Every structure is written in structure tokens, then in C-alpha cells.
Simulated assay, not measured.
Amino acid sequence: MAISQTPQDSQKRKIIIFSDFDGTIFMQDTGHVLVDSLGGGQAYRNMLEKQFESGERTFREISDDMWGSLTIPFGDGFDIMKDTLKIDPGFQEFYQYCQKEGFPFNVISAGLKPVLQRTLEIFLGEKEAAKMNIVANSLEAPGGIPWKPVWLHDCDTGLDKALSVNEARSQAQLECLPGEIPLIVFIGDGVSDLAAAREADVLFARRGLRLEAHCKEHNIPYTPFDTFADIKREIEALSLEDQKKTGGHGKPVRYNPRANMWRSLSSKEAVPTLLATATPSEVEKMALWPDYFSQPKDQPETIQE
């Protein structure tokens, strides 16, 4: 994809990475694993899904019920995670690469931060997990029964991913050295990631899932990936461009030239079709049911547990 030259092309880019958690770093959804196995169960969660799809109840209302169905001490729920979850085979090497290069790595998720933190400790170790910034909802008095979410933002979805990404961009602009500009990289798998993905300068979408399908359908620039090893190669090439002003391995990263445009838009009429046609209820569905919205496009759109 050809990128037109701008004055910013000569500036060094401060690479900042955001990644979705469920379905991206891990192949399964942590909340679904806990609730299906130790809470209300799959049938109960499916009932909540139907209430949400009908518009009868909001995301936060049914999420309160979903997490509230867990009546076990917080620490008792994680053996099932170790036995059930599978981490992307290239993630640990990619994360270590980011640490070595000084690229800030952020997890952004509509899940619960204590759950994500403990899961990362199981798979990465406490020392490595402690280094990772997690942008997610919280849990009231971890260890309390029943579980009660504490929402990060005052919105129906509980977490505004686009707001979080732009806050990081603003902070990065303050911290940039002379001649540097922030470059936001977002990694995701489902339509639930669109709010953050549209704010990114470089977007990676897991191959064959719903985020890639929407990118193709609406001509959104992105780079597909199968594992984080693919992303590592692309980020290495992107970083090399700042040093040599070449495409690295010859396969240019697909930049999102519309990111700045999206950030400056204020009217619905000016929003690209993908965003203008999404009603609030649809956006909420994307955030709550990532399994539903992360299926390959050629499969029936039913919840896969």
C-alpha cells in the first residue's frame, strides 16, 4: 500500500502497542471460562446474551449478573484457567522483544483487571506480568463474594477503548523527545476491537476472524497475523524504517491514513460507513460477546463456547 509523504515521515516514531486480551493473547475468553465452569454456567450466560441482543438489558446490567454468578473466593478460580486457556505461541517472545526495545506494551480489555493479571501471572510469571500495563475494569474487594465489577468509564460498555488509546497518545506526545511522534499499534481479533482499532496508526487483525472480515469489507488498512511471531517481524521492519528509511524485509506495514481523520471528526455524516451504521446496541454487543463477533466470516454466527 503506497503511503504519501508528509513532514512527519522524516520524524522518528515512538511505538506504543495496545493488544486485546481474550481471543488475541489467549485463544479463549477468560470470563466465559470462569462463568461457564464455576459460575452460572453456559446456559445462564446464553440467557443473558439473549436479553442483551433483544435490547432488554444493557451490557453493564447483564455483566453485573454474569460476574455476580461467581460465588467462589477470587483465588479459587484459576486452576481452571491453567488447564483450559491456551496462550498465543508467539506472544511471550514478542512481549520480551517489546521490553528489550523499550516499546510500551498495553493490554486493553473489557474484562476484569484482577482476572487478567492473575492469568498473566500463571502463564508468564509474577515478575513479567507485573511489568505489563493493563487497561481494564476492576473488581470490588477482590476476594469478596459475589464478584462485583467496578467499571472504568461511565458508559454503557463500562470501558471506552477509543478513549483509553487516545489518552495514551496524548501522554506519549508529552513524553516524546524532539523529532519524535507517537505511533499507535493495535492488535485485535474481533469487531469488539473496532473502537480502539479506528484510533490506531497500524492495525493487526488475527487472520480469518471478524475484525479482518470487517477490515476487508470496509477497506480499512490492516496487516493480518496468525501468531505474535508475525507481528514481531512486522514491528521489527517498522522500527528499521526509522533507521534506514526502507521497508525492512520488503513487505510494508499497512498504515491507517484515516486515523487522524477519524480522530478529528465530530459529525455522524462524516463518519465512514462502518462506524455510521453501527448503533449503540451493536457496539455493546461487540464488546460483550467477543466469541460471537470473532468467528470466521464463512461460519454461522452463533456463540461458540
Rank of each mutant, 00 (worst) to 15 (best):
T277G: 11
I303W: 12
L120V: 00
D29Q: 11
K216N: 14
I231Y: 00
K148P: 08
K113E: 13
P272Y: 11
W262H: 14
S281E: 14
P257R: 06
L274E: 07
Y255N: 05
S4N: 12
E175I: 12
V35F: 00
I231V: 09
K100V: 02
L240H: 08
R45T: 13
L209Q: 01
P146V: 02
E199V: 06
L85Y: 09
P142V: 09
A2G: 15
F293E: 11
R233A: 14
G250A: 11
I235D: 00
P224A: 08
Q117Y: 13
I25A: 01
F293S: 11
L240F: 06
A162I: 05
D154S: 08
L116M: 02
P252E: 07
K161L: 10
Y292D: 08
M1G: 08
D189A: 06
E236R: 07
A43V: 14
H214K: 15
G68S: 06
E301Y: 12
E126R: 11
R263I: 07
Q295R: 09
L183P: 04
L112H: 03
S164Q: 14
I303T: 12
N166Y: 14
F186S: 03
K285F: 10
L38G: 08
E241Y: 15
G55A: 01
G55D: 05
T157G: 10
I80A: 02
N256W: 02
R263C: 12
V271P: 10
L120P: 04
F78M: 05
D20H: 00
G179C: 07
